[in-house]
Structures are given as C-alpha cells and as structure tokens.
C-alpha cells in the first residue's frame, strides 16, 4: 500500500460551480519525493494544502480522499486533524515570514510545536531545539534559538522554517515552492538539505514547483498539472526521456538548453473560470486532435507506471 494516496480530489468555488482542482489522483511510496510541476494557477498549492486538509476561504466544496499511512484524512474529526498536522504531515512555503511568528524567537516557536506534540521536560525540549537547528544547517544553534525571524538572513530564515516544520517529526513534508524567492546559491543549499533529509531520515516529500530544472533534480516521480488536472505522471527519468503529453513536451522544449530554445509554441494560460469542454490543452496544442475539441480525455496508463491524459495515446 502506498504511503500517500490522493483519490479523485476535487476543490471548487461556489461561483458558477467552478472546479479549481479536478479529480486529481496520485500516490507516493514512503521515502519517495514526488514533484508537482505546472505553471502558475494550475492548482498546485490548493492540492498541496489539501494534503493537510487545509482549504483557503472561498473553497465551497471538496470531495475525494487523502489517505496517509492507511488513514483517511477526510474522515477525521477536527480535533484529530489538529493532532495530525505537524506530526504526520507538515508544510513549508515560499515565504518563511508567513509561517514564522515575528514576535517570538525561533527557539520559542519550535518549543510551541514540541509542547503540543510531545511530552518532554524543559531540558529535553532545549536539546531537541538545538538538534533541530543543527540538522537544518544553522550554525551556533544556542545563539540562533534566541533570535527573532527578522534578525536572520534569508537563508537562515528558510532553514528555521524547515526546522519548525520538522519539530513534530512529520513523516510527510509538503514543500510548496520553498525556494522560489531565493537566489540560486541559496536555493541549491535548501534543495540539498531537503534531499538529505529524504535520504538520511526517510522523509517523504511532495515538492511543488513551476521550475522544470528543480523538479528534475529533486523528485523521483513527477506529476504534471495543467488547468487543475494531472495531465501526465511518470518517474523522473522516464518523463524526461519520453515525455508524452504535448504540454509536457512543450515545457521541456521551451526551457533554454545550451543557450538555445528548441521550440516555442503557442502560449497563454487557460482561464480557469471558462475551461473548454473538451481537452483543456486544445487551444495550445500544436497538433490538436479531432476528439479533443468536444470530448475530455481521461488519464490513462500507457505503459508501466506512465500515465497521460491525451487522446493520441488512446
């Protein structure tokens, strides 16, 4: 049984019955890193938050299920879900300041999490805080624990946020574009840290990004999102060597390679409020098929663990 299973996840707005995330399904083994790739507005963050059963205001209905380690998240009571958040599954975001409290020191914030989830005495908690800070590569943890978020550099702040997410010893970490605001030399250090936590501690990660390059190197398996749907899913090597969906091919070809761009195709993001009835990629598809105009393709398995939503592979 996979460690994480998302089944037919649907999130929608009240207005005109708009669905923002549409029948998204995927699964993940323990210790794997799943990359969710797609352009802005395609539903990545909404999907990420759903893995903690968190929904932003405005979301009027949801259905489907998220099963972590055999337990259904959507069947739990409000109280049970609070216990689970941070402990079984935690999230880190692009902007550390939005998840760190400006008026508490880093140490105090981590301590709160420890108090909530574990029965430790003051000394044990202190030890644990230092260990966590060290683990995420923060030097002089005794000093840094006494700092407020604004006293830390951008890189240390990002690390502090990760330390806080790890404080409850989660088994699953949702990382929603955690390096998008960082410079490349910091970004790679944070990616290396996450990759190390995955390898050394067996942390399972869902890594969300719009950047093909990052997903290529961090993820072992990739879900490509387009307009609220999964349009392709495969292991990383397979997806890069043998991309099937015209959108995935477009993404790969439009990334500058050795100073050249292979192919530029029609751009333009779909309007999520007026999605086409047929294939959602129809308008941008280089070689649209006949069926795509009126009918909506299903996600099908083309070969061993490679899935695509496109009539060409029917």
């Amino acid at each position: 049984m996979p460690f994480l299973e998302v089944k037919d996840l649907v999130l929608g707005l009240k207005r005109k019955n708009v669905t923002l995330v549409d029948k998204v399904s995927f699964s993940l083994e323990k210790k794997e890193i799943l990359g969710i790739l797609g352009e802005s507005g395609c539903g990545k963050s909404l999907t990420g938050f759903s893995l903690l059963r968190l929904f932003p205001p405005g979301i009027a209905h949801y259905s489907g299920d998220v099963i972590i380690d055999g337990g259904s998240l959507y069947k739990l009571s409000e109280e049970e879900i609070l216990k689970l958040r941070g402990k079984k599954v935690a999230i880190i975001l692009q902007d550390p300041l939005s998840s760190l409290n400006p008026v508490l020191t880093i140490g105090e914030q981590i301590e709160e999490v420890l108090k909530y989830h574990f029965n430790l005495n003051k000394n044990e908690r202190k030890e644990r805080i230092y260990r966590l800070l060290k683990e995420v590569g923060i030097p002089d943890p005794e000093i840094r624990a006494k700092n407020y978020p604004h006293q830390l550099s951008g890189g240390l702040r990002q690390r502090a946020m990760i330390a806080m997410a790890l404080a409850g010893e989660p088994e699953l970490l949702v990382a929603d574009e955690p390096t998008t605001a960082l410079d490349v030399t910091l970004q790679i250090q944070i990616l290396e840290l996450l990759s190390e936590l995955n390898q050394k501690k067996g942390l399972t990660i869902v890594f969300i990004s719009h950047d093909l390059g990052i997903i290529r190197w961090i993820a072992s398996k990739i879900c490509v999102f387009y307009a609220g749907e999964v349009v392709e899913m495969a292991h990383t090597e397979e997806l890069f060597n043998n991309p099937l969906h015209p959108y995935t091919i477009n993404l790969i070809n439009s990334y500058p390679r050795e100073g050249k761009i292979k192919k530029i195709l029609k751009g333009g993001v779909v309007n999520i409020y007026e999605k086409p009835e047929g294939c959602r990629y129809f308008e941008r598809c280089e070689n649209p098929c006949k069926d795509g105009k009126k009918s909506h393709p299903e996600l099908i398995s083309v070969k061993n663990r490679h899935f695509v939503r496109c009539f060409r592979y029917g």
Binding site: T185, L186, I188, S195, R216
Partner: peptide
C-alpha cells in the same frame, strides 16, 4: 563557477547536488 554549479539545469549530464555551493552574499 558557483553560479554555474547552483543553476538547476534540467539537461545537465551531471547531477545538480554537489555540495559545492555554500554561504550567503
């Protein structure tokens, strides 16, 4: 060199993570 090593080139033949990039500006 550090910028080149840190740039996540999806087509690079070498893996991205080399542990060579460190520090902050």
């Amino acid at each position: 060199l550090m910028l080149i090593n840190a740039s996540p080139d999806p087509f690079s033949p070498k893996p991205l993570f080399s542990k060579k990039v460190r520090g902050e500006v």
